[in-house]
């Protein structure tokens, strides 16, 4: 497959994986916890590098999952100790993220991991980092990693569909009928961490937030049905990746930044023109007053 083809496939995988997992967070009203986790996952990546001295997929995924769960746990603990939810998220993610960036600057330029990379990823390099098994070239590593995480996410959502759905819309009822809401919560936070780390090489730890939250928020504006929001969010994520890549090439700007901007454009259109959108409301109002 061509160089551009691999980049587009990587982008679509990032968009769909983040879109699907992110929609659950928006529905569960934990968007900012996801924002926090996608920042702190950088610490997991840096930690995995310090331990293994390499940037291989499996240690990175484990490191990210550990730090992601740690973030969710620390935020929860501080909140129980009487700190506002908002402020506990703020303290935890800034602390862990700052630690990660400082450690990064000590690693220096000896590996392909620096603050700029952490910020916006380098999807343009993704096709060159190949996965070679027994001498057979199997395509870019990032594509394998993203496909694995997408598969895991789909499996988890499929297996726990009912539990996730009920605990999302009626927390107390879910507890009442014996759904392990805590387990479901941490399970989804693990999915967020995995999505972030799989997307890290392509879009970086900060811009991945756009891919997680914005397609989900857009889809939620357009539909009320649980399954529709999930699917639509994946679709919008994928579309944003393609359009973002295309416009970044036209303007010669950051690909990840352009993808984030495109999710914003989709959101704006949905916000203005969905059934209850501002523009639609305005015209309905004028029609009625005439």
């Amino acid at each position: 497959m061509s160089y551009t083809g691999w980049i587009i496939i990587t982008g679509i995988l990032v968009g769909v994986t983040c879109g699907i997992n992110g929609s659950l967070l928006v529905l569960r009203k934990t968007a900012m916890l996801a924002d926090a986790i996608s920042h702190t996952v950088l610490l997991g990546i840096v930690g995995a590098f310090f331990i293994t001295q390499t940037l291989h997929g499996i240690p990175m995924l484990i490191g990210a999952a550990v730090v992601g769960l740690l973030t969710a746990y620390l935020v929860e603990t501080l909140n129980q100790k009487g700190v506002q939810k908002d402020a506990s998220i703020g303290v935890i993610f800034t602390s862990l993220f700052a630690l990660a960036v400082v450690l990064l600057s000590f690693i220096g330029s000896q590996v392909h991991l620096d603050t700029e990379h952490a910020l916006m990823g380098e999807i343009a390099f993704v096709p060159w980092n190949r996965f070679v098994l027994h001498g057979i070239d199997l395509g870019p590593k990032a594509v394998w990693m993203l496909s694995t995480v997408l598969l895991i996410s789909l499996t988890v959502i499929f297996l726990f569909y009912k539990q996730i759905k009920i605990s999302t819309f009626d927390h107390h009822y879910a507890i009442l009928i014996g759904i392990p809401v805590g387990f479901i919560h941490y399970l989804l936070m693990t999915l967020v961490s995995l999505s972030t780390v799989a997307s890290f090489n392509s879009v970086g730890a900060i811009l991945v937030v756009a891919m997680l939250i914005v397609p989900g928020a857009t889809a939620y504006l357009l539909s009320d049905r649980f399954i529709n929001v999930i699917l639509l969010s994946g679709l919008i994520g994928g579309l944003s990746a393609i359009l973002g890549y295309w416009s970044a090439i036209q303007l010669n700007v950051s690909i990840a930044g352009a993808m984030a901007t495109t999710t914003g454009l989709f959101f704006m259109l949905a916000f203005l023109f969905h059934r209850e959108g501002l523009v639609i409301k305005y015209f309905r109002h004028r029609l009625r007053s005439q």
Binding site: D35, V209, A256, A258, T263
Partner: peptide, 18 residues
């Protein structure tokens, strides 16, 4: 508010990077 803040943070930052 959570989702609204998340959308604005990430999109504005993305535009800034662009």
């Amino acid at each position: 508010a959570d989702a609204a803040i998340g959308v604005i943070i990430s999109v504005f930052f993305g535009v800034g990077i662009v």
